[in-house]
């Protein structure tokens, strides 16, 4: 049985939402920054074997970054089964804003799944990555956290697949 899930990519501007989507969809990276206007919609079919064998189609709504929580943004959130919240690990302010984005998203979709991606990890030294306090952030946000790099592709697929598995598991239980 095929499954269709709408998921949103949410976060501040220039944190790499579109680059993450491109990496996941086409396994490519574009160095020059082009701001997303409104919303980009794309989809990817994936075959999961865990928790059950299933063909899952993720319809990805990549939303413009840093938009205030207007009724239009609220409308774009509506009907999403889950979301990937993205921050730039080199810009602490974008990480701080995550809790607000999650709160707004949950107002519209109280039961939706959420996963946090701390992107641009390739720009930090190994020491700095190790020093980053993921545990505190995980406790604060209550979501799984993935360190990712759209530039190198590090952990990108894992993050998307993790969300897909959670959605599949939840739907299957329901």
């Amino acid at each position: 049985m095929p499954y269709f899930f709408k998921i949103c990519l949410i976060g501040d501007f220039a944190v790499g939402k579109t680059s993450l989507a491109r990496r996941f969809l086409y396994n490519e990276y574009q160095a020059d920054y082009q701001a997303t206007i409104g919303v980009n919609i794309s989809k990817k079919e994936i075959h999961l074997t865990d928790p059950i064998p299933a063909q899952v189609t993720l319809v990805i709504w990549d939303l413009a970054g840093g938009e205030p929580f207007t009724p239009i943004v609220e409308a774009y959130y509506r009907g999403a089964a889950g979301a990937l919240f993205v921050a730039d690990i080199t810009r602490p302010a974008t990480v701080e804003h995550l809790s607000q984005y999650i709160e707004e998203f949950r107002l519209v979709n109280p039961d939706a799944e959420a996963v946090v991606l701390l992107n641009k990890v390739d720009l930090l030294s190994a020491h700095a990555v190790e020093a980053f306090d993921q545990e505190t952030l995980r406790e604060k946000l209550g979501t799984p956290i993935f360190l990712t790099s759209a530039r190198t592709g590090y952990n990108v697929e894992n993050a998307f697949l993790s969300l897909a598995r959670r959605l599949l598991e939840k739907t299957n239980h329901a």
Binding site: K43, T57, T70, P71, I72
Partner: peptide
């Protein structure tokens, strides 16, 4: 080209139109 994407974009346009003209 892809009905799923077209339907998503159509929905986004409808949302936009609705919120704009409210």
């Amino acid at each position: 080209k892809d009905p799923d994407l077209a339907a998503g974009l159509l929905t986004a346009i409808r949302n936009f139109a609705r919120e704009t003209f409210t």
